[in-house]
């Protein structure tokens, strides 16, 4: 009988252990990671990470609603993983770690790379030029990237008749993507927010001690 008891205890422990190990332990280990003070590339000292605010936070909701993460991951893997290609491809300068994600609800790590990783997309397309590029790319992906399989997000833009002066934020579309004369394509607030999100999306803002390899 005592052997049965041992067996049963063993079984329960094995069974409960995945809960302890895969849900509870990470919860205890990682749930209380705090932001820390660090220096950015430009030499500015700031707390990192910081929660998104305003337009960028709304842009993240647009990103979620349209399932962007089903093609774009947001994680940079170690230089010892997968030939270190993530970093060599210039998708990031260091691997991403737990602390980079503490304000993300829900977290958008992603499991698929039909398109390139976006963890630090703001580093690649920065400033007003980057925003313009992103708008054009969202509206007409194949105009900017021939051969791309990304769907057009034209539904985030509005086509309207030009009255008086053309709008300042009208997209500069060319060729088959340009609207007929007298019309212009302008971003909706959703498109603006999404592009704002992409232009602040940077998980490598400061070097973190735990990300050193």
């Amino acid at each position: 009988m005592d052997r049965t008891v041992t067996l049963l205890l063993g079984i329960t422990l094995t069974f409960a252990s995945s809960w302890l190990g895969l849900v509870f332990a990470p919860y205890v280990q990682m749930n209380n990671v705090q932001p820390i003070k660090g220096t950015t590339d430009d030499g500015v000292e700031e707390m990192y990470p910081r929660p998104l605010e305003g337009e960028a936070a709304y842009g993240r909701e647009v990103y979620i609603a349209n399932g962007c993460m089903y093609c774009h991951s947001q994680q940079i893997r170690s230089e010892h993983f997968g030939n270190g290609a993530d970093i060599k491809r210039n998708w990031g300068v260091r691997r991403t770690v737990q602390r980079d994600y503490i304000y993300e609800k829900p977290i958008l790590l992603g499991t698929m790379r039909t398109g390139p990783d976006l963890a630090n997309v703001a580093r690649r397309w920065s400033g007003q030029g980057g925003k313009d590029w992103n708008h054009l790319h969202l509206y007409a992906p194949r105009m900017m990237m021939p051969g791309s399989l990304m769907p057009s997000f034209a539904f985030l833009y509005e086509k309207r008749r030009i009255t008086g002066e053309p709008s300042a934020d009208a997209l500069k579309l060319q060729g088959e993507w340009a609207p007929e004369p007298g019309y212009e394509i302008v971003p909706t607030p959703q498109a603006k927010a999404l592009v704002e999100y992409l232009s602040v999306l940077d998980h490598n803002r400061i070097m973190l001690p735990e990300a050193q390899e």
Binding site: T4, L8, I11, T12, F15, A16, W19, F24, Y27
Partner: peptide
């Protein structure tokens, strides 16, 4: 929020682990 998670996870380990033991026994 912490309390909810602790209660759910630990509670379910006890409950379902217990159920598994009882089933085996």
């Amino acid at each position: 929020a912490d309390f909810i998670v602790y209660a759910t996870v630990l509670g379910s380990i006890v409950f379902f682990g217990g159920a598994a033991i009882l089933a085996m026994a």
